[in-house]
Every structure is written in structure tokens, then in C-alpha cells.
Nucleic acid binder design. Sequence first.
DNA 1: ACCTGAACACCGTTCAAGT
DNA 2: ACCTGAACACCGTTCAAGT
Lengths: 239, 239
Amino acid sequence: VSSKNPFEPREVVGRRNRPAKAPLDREAIVAAGLDLLTREGASGLSLRKVATALDTGAASLYVYVESLDELEALVLDRALADVALPARRRGPWRQRLHAVLRSYLEVLYQRPGLAALAMRTVAVGPSGLAILEALLGLLDEAGLAPAAAAWAVDLVTLHATAVAAEQSNWRERGDVLGPVARVLDGISHETHPRIHALRADLVSGSGQGRFLWAVDVLINGLLATPLPEPDASDEVPAP
Amino acid sequence: VSSKNPFEPREVVGRRNRPAKAPLDREAIVAAGLDLLTREGASGLSLRKVATALDTGAASLYVYVESLDELEALVLDRALADVALPARRRGPWRQRLHAVLRSYLEVLYQRPGLAALAMRTVAVGPSGLAILEALLGLLDEAGLAPAAAAWAVDLVTLHATAVAAEQSNWRERGDVLGPVARVLDGISHETHPRIHALRADLVSGSGQGRFLWAVDVLINGLLATPLPEPDASDEVPAP
DNA sequence: ACCTGAACACCGTTCAAGT
DNA sequence: ACCTGAACACCGTTCAAGT
């Protein structure tokens, strides 16, 4: 059978038999999810789109993944593998701490929608745990008591995640900060004297500069603030 | 016509003519939205559900509201009207600052889904501006330079919002912190010595206690950290 | 055991048609 | 000017039916 004739019906290879396409697999699902998220943003990570990318139907994914929530947690942890952790214990701890947090921020910021995802998911996969372990080490080097370091690591990662989420949002909608600045410019001195006076300062500075300043605020505050007494009641910690 | 007979067909009042139901109106739409959000959580605030609550179709809302995004911003600001701001300038500023932030946290925390909404919306409505103005005053009392107060107010509200979002999330899913604690308990001392050692401290303390401690960390850090030089480049601020 | 299509119960937004 | 129903292009999840 000479099959050079272009008009002859092409032999339709069953989609299932194409060796190029990896068979369905938890790994492949997570990889496709992260890929879609990176390329299309928050709305790209849906079970239906992941399924389409893998040449199947959404229902088929449920064999490998319990729900969209679980897939999101897996995608987040896979992305967090890219966070650069300090290899050796060299140089000032503050610099290394800055570097880890900046890397974390960047990983979240580079994938639109990933930060929002991190806000609603506790990262306890292998990558998340590695970051946690590294941060605990750095906070120990900083001189924090172990129990304080435990609370501090939460504070510091929550801050970085929130900043990434806020900024990713602005970017995804296109408005960087312009509309806010315009609102602030319209604020009357009579009703809101402080906002009026500070209207420029409120939106000043680059995201990067403000983030690193905030990290220093956190570090300096942590060094200056002891844990509250482990009293049974919920009292205000002593200043 | 004696209409006491219960079997007589009730006179069906045209839905449009019932005086009990307020006519469509931006105010009514926002009120219905906040009501749904409060009672049903994040998934309660949808254009279709608001429309059903107001006895109309989703399309009708577009006369009064540009999009779901705009409705969300309006609902957020209306909810923020409940935040308690200090009436007079009495008592230590730190206590009043704690009180404002705790009230803000509570308002967000009491309406499931509102915190997540606040994470993706800049609150520049009347209520949001009133809170901003009050916080700027308190940070001025604390002794911060005006420009520092401008950045600080952002840092402090972002933190409170993020904490509310994180905790609302846990509550909405039912798992308070148990699953995380179980994961941490399974962490090996060999691979993650610090996480293993601190597995109890990482999840210890009440949300309230941790929040107030974190606020003090922020305040103390702000008092100890000057703004970076307004250099053109994005340098790390001096510690 | 794995995969599938169809169905269910939802979304935001648009638009032609009515009053 | 305001309201409406229907349509469009999506969702996550379930389930009976196939192999």
C-alpha cells in the first residue's frame, strides 16, 4: 500500500497510542497545571484546562487527584522548588535572609495567580518544608529564641506571600497604582488632612524597595519583641 | 367579596407591585450582597444570587454596578463601616492602635470570605479612608516620621488583612490546624531537625494572641527602622 | 483499574427585545 | 431609562457505562 497519496485518508492514530504524549500520571498533571498557571495566570489552572492540555476529560483527573484544592497544593509546592536557599552558612545572616525572602517573593510574583493560591494553601510539601527549615536556621542565627523563631517564620512568610498576592493582583488587572493615586489626589484636606498631606508618600517607592524595608522592619521588630508570657488567657503582650 | 375562604385562590400580587420589596437601587444591591456574604460566605456573593435575592435577573444589576469587581469593592467598604475608630485622643496610642487593628481584624473575620476579598481590593471608599486617616494619626502619635507613617500604614493593614484571610480560610474549610500539626509531627529529625524540634511551637498559641504579638513586632520594628535613602536605585536599606 | 461522555448545578457577562 | 430572558462561554464534581 503506497500511502504517499495526500488524498488517501490519513491513518488516524488513536490518541491513546501516541507515544509522544505521556500517559496520564500525577506528575504530568501537576506539571501541566503549573505550566498553564505560568502561561495563562490564575484562570489557567482549572481541571478542565489541565485535562484538555493532557488530551483527556476532566473526570479522568480524579483518579490521580482528589480535588482542585489538592492539585493547587501540589502545583504550589512544585513551584516553590525554584526558591533559592543559601547553600552554605557564609556571610551575614541578614543578607541571606533577605535573599531567601526575595527569591520566594520572585517565584510567587513570576507566576500570576500563584501568590493568591499560596494565600489559601499551607505549603507543607517537600519544597515548602525545605524553605521553612532554612528560615528557622536563619532566625536562629539572628539570635531569636527557638519558640520565637517558630512564630517569626510564620509572620515573615505570611508577609512575603501577602505582598506577592497584592502586587500580582495589581499587575493582573493592569492598573499598577494609578487609579489609587488619583483617588488620593482628590482627597480633601478638610476631611482627611493626613491622607491629603501624605498622598504622594502613600504610593511612593518601588515594590522591591518597600519589600526589603518591610523585611527589615520585621527583623528589627522580632529582635526587640519577646514572646508573650504563655499565660492561659489571651492578654495583650507587654510592650 | 368575603376572602376568608382559605381555598379561594390567593390574589397573586405582581412581583413588581409589591411595596414591601424595595425597588432596584445601588444601595439595596450592596446591602443584599453584604447580607449574602455574611450568611453564606464567599460563595454567597455572586451577581446571580444577589439578583435572586432582589427578585430579578443578574442582567438587571448591570445598570447599577459595572461588574462583580465593583460590587465587591462596594460591599467591602460598607462592611468596613463597622470598624471601631477611637473617638478621642485619650490613653496610650499603642492601646488605641491595637484596638483599631483588632476591630478591623474582627470585622473581616466575622464575614467569611470578606478577608479574601479585601486581599484583592484596595479599600478607598469612605470607610476605608476613615480607617486610613485614623491609623496615620496613631502612627504620628507613635513618633514616626510622616513618610514612614505612610509606608507603615500599608504594612500594618496588609498584615491584618492577611491574617484575617488566612484564618478565615482555615475556618471555612473546617480544618483549624489539625492536619498541619499532623504533618509536622511526622517530620523526621534527620532531614528537618529544626521543624522537628519546633513542631509544637509552630502551631502554638491562639490566633488572637499571635496577632497582638505580631502587631507589637511591627510597631517595635517600625520605631527601630528608618526609611531607606530615597536613592534612585533599589538598594537594600541599611540595617 | 482506568477512562469516558453526559449530566448537574453553578458562574459573569452580553445582547436583542420589550416597556 | 430600565428591565428581562436567553444565550455564550465557562466552572468543579458525580456517575453510569464502557474497556
